[in-house]
């Protein structure tokens, strides 16, 4: 079963990379772009076959290593 962990900087935490991307998009003429936030996605292949258990496992991994919850929030989705 595949778990997809999406990690983003928490709201309120400065995201200078997102800001730089936003500036670049504006410079390219995409005036419709407001705030840009950048994060990362980590895909995990898990041996677990139960979706609920797989989600719990991935959340545990996110808390212990994948995300730094001082500055980041995370979301886990299970793909079949």
């Amino acid at each position: 079963m595949k778990a997809i962990v999406t990690i983003m900087l928490k709201n309120g935490v400065l995201d200078p990379q997102g800001k730089a991307i936003g500036h670049a998009l504006n410079n390219l003429g995409f005036d419709q772009v407001g705030e840009v936030r950048m994060g990362k996605i980590i895909e995990l292949e898990l041996t677990e076959t139960d979706a609920a258990k797989a989600k719990t496992q991935a959340e545990d991994m996110a808390r212990k290593l994948l995300a730094n919850t001082v500055i980041e929030s995370f979301k886990v989705e299970i793909a079949a």
Binding site: L9, V13, L14, P16, Q17, A20, N68, V70, I71
Partner: peptide
């Protein structure tokens, strides 16, 4: 990161 001190170090504000 190991939790011995609080807080975190982010990317420099000016990148």
């Amino acid at each position: 990161e190991a939790g011995l001190l609080p807080g975190a170090l982010l990317r420099n504000a000016g990148l």
